[in-house]
Computed example of a mutant assay.
Amino acid sequence: MSQASLRRLGVLLAATVGVAACGGGDAVSPLPVQPPLPTRTTPAPSAIAATSASPASTGSPSRPPPTSARPAAPPPAPTRPRGTPRTTPPPTDATPACQGAVRYDLPLAETEIELLKSLCFATGAVLRIQGIGPGLVTVDRPELVSQQYEAGVVDIRFVRAGTVAVTIPKDDREHTITVVVR
């Protein structure tokens, strides 16, 4: 038996043992990649005798045998360590300047409302204004929002795209927040 045949035999045995150890029937078919270069080990005499009595396998009929002796690329390293929870990506319509369809809490007792001039949300977002009386918060485009008051909290849901000016009275002044809805 030639040295090249022995190398192919070693690779075939290593692949067979590796697949058998991975779970058998539930295992996923491997990707069509080139086999790694064999190392300079000598196969056991029983393995040589077993393969010389049976015809050599040509591989999968849908995939031709490899033509070059290039080593296969190692599998990619995991991008996160095991046990680390996956994070969910932000909604596709969110940008750094514009938030997605989120609930934005605005507690008036804890917020310097003079510093808040504008916001940007996706359709479906809710602006929750906490600590205000009924009928005090107004919007200039009521057809773009759904507004509800309960127990000192005003929920403004942005149901259509557009620009809405939300006016909130505080300390005898009216503060307007321009909300862009995408």
Rank of each mutant, 00 (worst) to 15 (best):
G83N: 07
A21E: 11
V181H: 05
D105Q: 13
S118P: 00
L136K: 15
A53Y: 01
L9E: 05
G83Y: 02
I113H: 00
L12A: 15
E112G: 03
V137Q: 10
P43C: 09
S60Q: 06
P65K: 04
S60C: 10
R8C: 05
E110M: 01
P81Y: 02
L116S: 02
V137M: 08
P74G: 06
T84A: 11
R82E: 08
A20Q: 13
G152W: 06
Q3P: 09
D93R: 12
P35V: 10
S54V: 15
L127M: 14
T84F: 07
R63E: 06
V145W: 01
T84W: 03
A44D: 13
D26S: 12
Q99A: 15
V166R: 00
V17M: 07
P89C: 03
Q3L: 13
T51W: 08
G162P: 11
P36Q: 07
P85T: 07
R103Y: 00
V179D: 05
S62A: 14
G24N: 10
R173M: 03
A109S: 15
V11Q: 15
P96G: 01
S54N: 08
A14K: 12
P30L: 12
T42C: 05
R70T: 14
I48S: 05
D26M: 06
A47P: 01
E143L: 11
C98V: 10
T87R: 14
T138M: 09
I177G: 05
Q148K: 11
S29P: 11
Q130R: 15
P43K: 06
S46V: 14
D172H: 03
P66H: 13
V126R: 13
G133P: 00
L6V: 09
L127S: 08
A15T: 12
R7N: 14
G59M: 04
Y149I: 04
P71E: 04
R70Y: 03
S54F: 08
T51C: 07
V153F: 04
S29N: 11
T163Q: 10
V126G: 02
P107C: 04
